[in-house]
Design a binder for these strands. Structure first.
Lengths: 193, 193
DNA sequence: TAAAATTCTTGCCATAAGACAAGTTCAACT
DNA sequence: AGTTGAACTTGTCTTATGGCAAGAATTTTA
């Protein structure tokens, strides 16, 4: 496994070549077996991952103890629990590998040092945060303005890997519906084609 | 109007006294009449506000043109369209004053200079982003796991100013329901007390 | 202060999604 | 390979919320 993906992830107009090398060298290859927990509720996150290959999900528990998938992480995405990592507080969520995964890992201390010493990396970080913020803001609107069926169709279009690799019940809770309703929606969709 | 609020907003263990002064001096007092648009869809945001007194809302348009309130900004909160400000792109949302408002404004260029020259301010910014990210992530989950009525009760508890100062239809769309349903929920809630 | 416009409420009926329970299929583990 | 348990589907009924339209209340404007 080469570090090619990392060059892609961290490419940014304000990050020069030497700096980019420095950032990339702070990453180590690491892999996880299907089912492994990368982070458990209550632990303090100590770094983040970049997914080379595989699928993970994050999930929390709602007031009656049901587990709710809050996000999926697939190829080329950053696997992170922002609040726990940056505020050094116990995680409110779990992160779990849904398939065998190959990743690149960077530890908090190394990240922190680079973040504060490379201005372009600070910008890169803020850019990433900005995009995530937008994503979740949009999601919070769409969860009520779009029907569950349309959210499912949108997921199929935007992240087909998830629909192919994840157990359905996790997708259901990610879409904000029960697995029963999801099963009916899937039936309906399949009959339309 | 003194700058006391600003000392509170920007207080952070890694921001020293001199630096704090520098940050605060970059802010100017500004006020808006009820109804004013602070930002319109398509414009590029050029700074952000800190609300001393008043209420604003941000809103977008969904696929059939209805306006959807995505957020409220009340006292001591930061009024900002993150994506437009930091990515220098046309805003996807509008921001509008719902009451007369007194604010502090800081322009993008001044912010940017401080953000990159004061490490504690960089941390402060990341901290703020982290909190916002958490807020929207949580909101996206709650929009489907909690009933509209409970979301309303939660809003009353957490941000009573909004319920007191905003037209009901804006609250309805913020809660993700029609004004018709909201009216019924309000009736129900009032009859319980 | 009257008229107009907007906001809010209410009634009636439609629909999406949930709750619960019984099957069925699939995967994991001796 | 057979057993156990988990994941998924289906049926029936209930419930929360939406759509539309009419009316009441409030705010804005002339």
């Amino acid at each position: 496994m080469t570090k090619e993906l990392l060059y892609h992830i961290y490419s940014h107009p304000l990050i020069g070549e030497t700096e980019l090398e420095k950032i990339i060298q702070a990453h180590q290859s690491i892999s996880f077996k299907k089912g492994t927990f990368i982070l458990k509720e209550g632990e303090i996150s100590d770094g983040y991952l970049i997914m080379e290959n595989g699928l993970m999900r994050s999930f929390a528990h709602n007031y009656n103890g049901n587990d709710i998938t809050t996000d999926f992480f697939s190829n080329q995405e950053i696997v992170i629990e922002v609040l726990s990592l940056f505020q050094r507080m116990p995680a409110g969520e779990n992160i779990q590998a849904l398939t065998d995964c190959e990743c690149w890992e960077i530890k908090f201390d190394a990240f922190q040092e680079l973040f504060h010493s490379i201005p372009g990396f600070t910008e890169w970080g803020r850019l990433w945060m900005t995009n995530r913020l937008f994503h979740f803001k949009q999601r919070s609107v769409e969860m009520v303005t779009i029907s569950a069926k349309d959210r499912y169709l949108q997921l199929i279009k935007e992240k087909p890997q998830i629909v192919l690799q994840s157990p359905l019940k996790y997708i259901a809770s990610y879409l904000g519906i029960t697995d029963t309703s999801f099963s009916r929606i899937r039936k309906e969709v399949s009959q339309e084609n």
